[in-house]
Computed example of a mutant assay.
Amino acid sequence: MADHQRQKIHPVGLEAHPPPTAPLVPPNSSSSEKGTPMQVQHIPPSLQHYAIPKRRSCFCKCMCWTLFLFVLIIIILAATLGILYIVFKPKLPNYSVETLRISDLRLNFDMSLYAKFDVKITANNPNKKIGIYYEKGGKMSVWYTNTRLCEGSIPKFYQGHQNKTVLNVSLNGQVQAGSTLMAALQQQHKTGQVPLVLKVHAPVAIKLGRLKLRKVKVLGECQLVVDSLSSNNLISIKASNCKFRMKL
């Protein structure tokens, strides 16, 4: 038989078989050894995906419970504040400047401006069921434009329900390089209309019944127009506009 004829003959009935796969169980392991069941060494990939949804489910439950508790606390606080508001009906205290006297206003040899004012102010607590503790550290000051002329301390006291308290506060201060400021004040004095600003900064504690709450701050500002800056004389307050607010 020729060589080219031999090359066309192929074996029949011989098919290629895939290589044998490694068994899941080692061959030398026995299912009946010591009465224990046969253990599988390799976990199929399809079974390894069941742990992830379980962890996600626990995380989602924790987030839902946390959000629920947070919303519940907000609702409880809002309901408590609403009940307190209905029961006590809180109102802001208000203040009015009664008199203003300049005890001293002079230019020193070092060209600093010395000022001493005496202010009488009425503090009014309009609340029927709320008392106010005026704590230590309260300040009152008088300003001209953006310059503080003098400052004094507000006394510490307790103000009861629907009470009016008159405070006499002495203010004093010294401003460096006061010659320019003194000239401006004298010019305003000639017109008979001197704009001044009275600022109040008072830490207070609110008393609801027998409960004393945490401290808050009463911040106030009174825009005043006075007719004169004469020393040792009562000054006529021609205009007064006061605004007050509370700050936590």
Score class of each variant (00 low, 15 high):
Leu47Thr: 00
Ser29Gln: 12
Lys136His: 00
Thr122Glu: 09
Ser96Asp: 02
Gln187Tyr: 06
Val197Gly: 04
Lys89Tyr: 04
Asn125Phe: 00
Leu181Asn: 07
Phe244Leu: 14
Pro37Gly: 07
Gly178Asn: 10
Leu47Gln: 12
Leu84Glu: 02
Lys139Tyr: 01
Cys150Pro: 06
Arg55Cys: 11
Lys156Met: 11
Gln174Met: 14
Ile75Leu: 15
His189Ala: 15
Gly82Glu: 04
Pro53Ala: 05
Lys128Pro: 01
Tyr50Ala: 13
Met182Glu: 03
Arg245Asp: 03
Val200Glu: 10
Asn241Leu: 03
Glu221Phe: 05
Tyr134Pro: 02
Val25Cys: 06
Tyr95Arg: 05
Gln187Phe: 03
Ile76Gln: 10
Ser179Leu: 12
Leu171Val: 06
Ile237Leu: 11
Leu248His: 04
Lys243Asp: 06
Asn233Arg: 12
Pro27Cys: 09
His4Ser: 08
Ala51Glu: 04
Thr191Ser: 15
Phe157Ala: 11
Ser228Leu: 07
Pro23Asp: 08
Val12Ile: 15
Ile74Val: 09
Lys164Trp: 05
His201Val: 02
Pro203Trp: 07
Val197Tyr: 03
Ser30Tyr: 00
Ser96His: 05
Gly35Ser: 09
Tyr133Trp: 08
Leu167Gly: 02
Ser96Val: 04
Arg6Tyr: 05
Ala177Gln: 12
Gly35Phe: 04
Gln5Ser: 05
Leu208Ile: 08
Val97Ser: 10
Ala2Val: 02
Phe157Leu: 15
Met63Phe: 04
Gly35Val: 11
Pro45Glu: 02
Pro155Ile: 08
Gln188Ser: 14
Met63Gln: 00
Thr21Cys: 06
Lys215Arg: 15
Lys212Asn: 10
Tyr158Pro: 05
Val218Arg: 06
Thr191Asp: 07
Asp227Ser: 14
Lys54Tyr: 05
Lys207Arg: 15
His4Arg: 10
Leu185Cys: 03
Asn168His: 12
Arg56Tyr: 03
Lys89Thr: 04
Ser32Leu: 13
Gly173Val: 06
Tyr158Thr: 08
Pro203Met: 10
Asp104Gln: 14
Leu234Glu: 05
Val119Leu: 15
Pro26Asn: 12
Val216Tyr: 02
